[in-house]
């Protein structure tokens, strides 16, 4: 691909398109925007393939490009607004894990609560639980320290528990 071989691009696209689309879709919550950004990512891959030095895995590299392109798209959607990179979560009384376990068994409720998370939290949840990536690789993709990835995941989990407990209280699960 670095030498302009289009058949290599075809192979690369077919191999990574699904993963990259799902990651972007999880960040943008919009499949049309996600399709556009996927195209931008693959075009960037084509243009910059010769500069890929192999310091990270290919999937880390392409998901990192996808992360930045998706953030650009969010900024264009809301000009003037900053992208929430590490939102603070109110440290109030959170429900415990055992209390929210039954709600977590309902796929619809979990999806609803994941959709309520900030973009930064959704990304980490997706990369940790859908992609099953180690925290070090997630840090490389989203461009932040490993400790930040861990705390984002911690806050995401608390927000999910709170959301699920709220649905349970309303009798929706």
């Amino acid at each position: 691909m670095a030498n302009g071989d289009e058949s290599a691009m075809d192979e690369f696209y077919r191999l990574y398109e699904g993963r990259v689309f799902r990651f972007i879709r999880s960040k943008l919550n919009d499949s049309f925007d996600a399709s556009d950004v996927l195209n931008e990512v693959m075009f960037e891959v084509w243009r910059s393939a010769s500069r890929f030095e192999g310091r990270s895995s290919v999937s880390t590299w392409v998901l990192g490009i996808a992360h930045h392109k998706a953030i650009d798209r969010i900024r264009r959607r809301k000009p003037g607004e900053s992208v929430e990179l590490d939102p603070e979560i109110a440290e109030d009384e959170s429900p415990n894990a055992a209390e929210t376990l039954s709600a977590a068994q309902d796929a619809e409720q979990v999806r609803h609560c994941v959709d309520q998370l900030s973009e930064a939290h959704r990304s980490v949840v997706h990369l940790a639980f859908f992609e099953d990536l180690p925290y070090g690789q997630i840090a490389d993709i989203v461009g932040c320290p490993e400790g930040t990835v861990k705390t984002r995941m911690f806050h995401a989990k608390k927000a999910l528990m709170k959301c699920l407990a709220g649905l349970k209280e309303m009798g929706l699960s």
Binding site: E17, G18, F21, R22, R25, S26, S31, S35, L38, N39, A104, Q105, A107, V110, R111, V114, V125, H126, F129, F130
Partner: peptide
């Protein structure tokens, strides 16, 4: 649950 989430089809 996250793994079983169904997203729209990719392009």
């Amino acid at each position: 649950q996250v793994k079983e989430q169904a997203f729209e089809n990719s392009p």
